[in-house]
């Protein structure tokens, strides 16, 4: 199964643009980053593809249990360059997730590497499953 997956040929996907509920004040395109989210016993991990974003231009905020990922990409081309052809566009990234109370919001860790953001959201102690031993007698 894993082997099969590794041999798959990648197809391009157009970046999905955000259709905002409110109009934005700044011009430019806003895209939704692709994410993987998985849960282990102790934490929830979010992996988001945000190519071109530097740590300085990445904002992760948590307010009222809403996790917001916001990143900005500077134009890749210098001013002297003329475009011959363009298949992808760059702009901002924006995505929000609502988190439940089981996340220990003070211990969230974020790491950005090669355009992939890894967010580790640890669960609070009470939410990690405990095995209850059943005694006989």
């Amino acid at each position: 199964m894993t082997e099969e997956k590794a041999k798959k040929t990648l197809k391009p996907r157009d970046k999905t643009q955000v259709s905002p509920a409110v109009e934005q004040t700044r011009p430019g395109k806003v895209f939704i980053p692709d994410v993987d989210i998985y849960e282990t016993e102790k934490e929830i991990v979010v992996l988001a593809d945000m190519p071109g974003v530097t740590p300085e231009k990445l904002n992760i905020t948590l307010k009222d249990n809403v996790l917001t990922l916001e990143g900005e990409v500077d134009p890749l081309e210098s001013k002297e360059e003329r475009i011959i052809f363009k298949e992808f566009e760059t702009g901002r990234y924006f995505r929000q997730f609502s988190l439940s109370h089981i996340i220990d919001q003070s211990k969230i860790e974020a790491n950005l590497k090669d355009g992939v953001l890894k967010l580790v959201l640890p669960k609070v102690e009470a939410a990690t499953p405990r095995k209850i031993e059943v005694k006989e007698g």
């Binding site: 990648l10 071109g52 081309e77 011959i84 052809f85 992808f88 090669d114 355009g115």
Partner: peptide, 22 residues
């Protein structure tokens, strides 16, 4: 065909760029 690329040029060079996160 993946990846999507942008191609540009200036007086001295061609530039090919592709998004390949991870």
């Amino acid at each position: 065909v993946f990846p999507l690329v942008n191609v540009s040029e200036d007086n001295n060079n061609y530039y090919v760029r592709a998004e390949l996160p991870g």
